[in-house]
Design a binder for these strands. Structure first.
Lengths: 123, 123
DNA sequence: TTACTATATTGCTATACTGCGATATAGTCA
DNA sequence: TGACTATATCGCAGTATAGCAATATAGTAA
């Protein structure tokens, strides 16, 4: 996830080829989702809102790391933060991410199946 | 995109919480898609197969960089390579990626709209 | 073979990121 | 106020990556 590279091509004419700025936004979202620890946190949060401490327990990640990744997820607009007394409660804000993951899972699974089939054919 | 971290949790019982290995595979795919230059190449290839030289022209990236990114995209199983005489022709193999990008675009656009609306309310 | 074109790879620098321990900050309770 | 808990941030070491120029490789044509 590189946040520079703000170039621009002078394309107009609607949307099909996606403007450079959009492209960059898409790349950034993918970048946020490209880290195992963050996906793990999202997956845990899918079951419902949790505090940082609870996330630390369930994820088995260090507190500092969980806090940092939560900050990144929040900056990306993927999760929400709510202060509850002493604690911070995080929750999913963009359920879209789960659709993305499912799509990828199907794609990856299909690919793996195809590769296996190809191997079987060549064996 | 970190390719290590091959841990495993002993979950069974179907699919909902996604196994660690799957999670890692998803993260890797997202990692490949998290670079502007690669998305740009994919977008250009969406119109049809092209040689490296043509991609260099249309993308305005350097040849070495295009070649490197093509290699990464191919390793990820997203594009295919075919040798045609002197040249290498690359084509999309996993159209899934465009679904992903569209989903993200919609999500990002919606988010932007919501943010703008929120700003308007608070102004 | 040589000259030429197209693509891939290597070595490099700069940058960015993760995960860590230590520490700072914020909120609660007495 | 002080002691305590929960969360955020800082500084660091290690690692990964992009993009570049230069070079190597492969294929074509003479």
């Amino acid at each position: 996830m590189n946040v520079k590279n703000k170039s621009r091509n002078g394309r107009s004419g609607g949307h099909p080829p996606l403007e450079a700025a959009q492209l960059q936004a898409v790349a950034e979202l993918f970048g946020v989702l490209s880290e195992g620890s963050r996906l793990r946190i999202l997956q845990i949060l899918q079951a419902g809102p949790l505090s940082v401490g609870e996330l630390v327990e369930q994820s088995r990640l260090k507190q500092a790391n969980v806090s940092k990744q939560l900050g990144i997820l929040q900056s990306a607009g993927i999760i929400d933060r709510r202060q509850d007394g002493n604690r911070a409660i995080y929750s999913i804000k963009l359920p879209l991410v789960f659709e993305l993951c499912e799509l990828v899972c199907h794609g990856v699974a299909k690919q793996a199946a195809e590769r296996a089939a190809a191997l079987a054919r060549n064996a």
